[in-house]
């Protein structure tokens, strides 16, 4: 069944169609949100919110490109979650940046490296490398021109690769948010 078929049935359907959509996209969106948020618990909540929101607003969805719609909501919700997390106190920012992980499937090393990127860079790298999205598709998702994304991708890719090589206690310490 094509994405459009399912999208149209979801837009007009009920809880059975919702479950079908969750079974198809749940895992992918959980991985995507975990990569952006670097926090599995938050990602779980965000993805639940995504499906709730999609279901409640399904009448407004035109049924086309369900995948892109769900990824877009997940991306937006993840950024909103990060904004909520953003607290002025330095200490809290620091805690956000390097608190240890005991609950995700990410290794500490990968997590620390990912957290040194901006959330938008994480979303870009994940979309390009793991989902194999084109720059045009990413452009729709991230709201940036394909040309700009291409440059940003190269920078982010080289940064993350360097961080992964440097390991958990690499030299760079500057963190940027959203």
């Amino acid at each position: 069944m094509s994405d459009t078929d399912l999208g149209q049935r979801f837009a007009a359907g009920g809880e059975d169609e919702l479950e079908e959509v969750i079974n198809l996209y749940g895992e992918k969106l959980l991985r995507y949100a975990t990569a952006i948020l670097c926090d599995y618990h938050e990602a779980e909540n965000v993805v639940q919110d995504v499906f709730l929101s999609a279901y409640q607003n399904r009448k407004a969805f035109d049924g086309k490109n369900l995948s892109a719609w769900l990824y877009k909501i997940t991306y937006n919700r993840s950024l909103n979650q990060l904004k909520k997390r953003r607290i002025l106190c330095f200490g809290e920012i620091r805690a956000q940046a390097v608190s240890p992980i005991d609950d995700t499937g990410l290794s500490d090393e990968t997590l620390c490296a990912l957290r040194r990127l901006k959330p938008k860079e994480r979303a870009l790298l994940y979309g390009r490398i793991m989902e194999e999205l084109s720059y045009e598709e990413l452009s729709q998702l991230l709201g940036c021109s394909p040309t700009a994304l291409r440059k940003r991708y190269e920078r982010a890719k080289n940064k993350l690769a360097a961080y992964l090589t440097a390991g958990q206690y690499g030299k760079e310490t500057k963190h940027e948010y959203i």
């Binding site: 919702l18 079974n23 895992e27 639940q48 709730l52 499937g105 990410l106 790298l125 490398i129 993350l160």
Partner: peptide, 19 residues
């Protein structure tokens, strides 16, 4: 990067039920 991000493990088995 692909190798690192492939390590993300998730448990979607209860997602539908939770939603």
């Amino acid at each position: 990067i692909h190798d690192a991000l492939s390590q993300i493990t998730v448990d979607e088995s209860k997602l539908a039920e939770q939603v």
